[in-house]
């Protein structure tokens, strides 16, 4: 219930209606949305029980390594009601044709694969918020100093997931495991996204806000 209450309000992409649709416009819209999502994710992390007690350095290392996983898990969850469409925001839904035009076939394909897994599992919101918090604490950053504290946080969230599943889905004894086994695909997809947007940064054609740039560089 704590995690449910910590769920942030949804953001809107608000693509500029005065600019004609183009590859550049799509990327600009996505990068602007990602920058605002980052602010929200950082604020959300502070509400994860135990996270603010970590050292500031460890909080930074963790967020620098998992922010895209958290962001993409959110996109996959939003996309659940829309078959084969990626809901970056309620006002920015990409179908396969749009993905092709935006050069996002591979990335959106991966997000779609993830969303399909969650759709098949009929992932509920409680599971989504717990999985997102677990993804946060499951950072394998080599820069974490107090590994024990992070492990404790992960254990507490893992326990919460197991407890939830044993009461809400007692007919599916392997459900928690199935949910956790989606995390490798989430990390793989986040890495794919990172490469895509890092290459965009290197090309230098798409305007990017400072926080987004900083996190891409990290």
């Amino acid at each position: 219930s704590h995690l449910m209450a910590a769920e942030p309000e949804k953001l809107f992409a608000m693509p500029d209606p005065l600019v004609q649709d183009s590859y550049l416009k799509t990327m600009t819209t996505l990068c602007d949305l990602a920058d605002r999502e980052l602010v929200v994710i950082i604020g959300w992390a502070k509400h994860i029980p135990g996270f603010p007690s970590l050292s500031l350095a460890d909080q930074m290392s963790i967020l620098q390594s998992v922010w895209l996983e958290v962001l993409i898990l959110g996109v996959a969850f939003r996309s659940l009601p829309y078959e084969d469409e990626i809901v970056f925001a309620e006002d920015y839904i990409m179908d396969e044709d749009m993905s092709t035009m935006a050069g996002l076939t591979e990335l959106n394909g991966a997000i779609n694969q993830l969303a399909r897994k969650y759709r098949n599992l009929q992932l509920d919101k409680e599971e989504f918020v717990m999985l997102k918090a677990i993804a946060l604490t499951n950072s394998d950053s080599v820069h974490i100093e107090d590994l024990e504290a992070v492990q404790h946080l992960k254990d507490v969230l893992h326990e919460a997931l197991l407890e939830y599943e044993s009461t809400k889905h007692s007919d599916e004894p392997r459900r928690a495991g199935k949910l956790l086994m989606t995390l490798p695909l989430l990390r793989q997809t986040a890495n794919r996204a990172l490469h895509h947007f890092y290459n965009l940064k290197v090309e230098g054609k798409v305007p990017m806000h400072k926080l987004f740039l900083e996190m891409l560089e990290a």
């Binding site: 602010v39 500031l56 967020l63 400072k210 900083e214």
Partner: peptide, 15 residues
């Protein structure tokens, strides 16, 4: 160097 990061500032803010 880390202290100059926006992430650092956002984590330090109380809200």
């Amino acid at each position: 160097k880390e202290k100059h990061k926006i992430l650092h500032r956002l984590l330090q803010n109380s809200s």
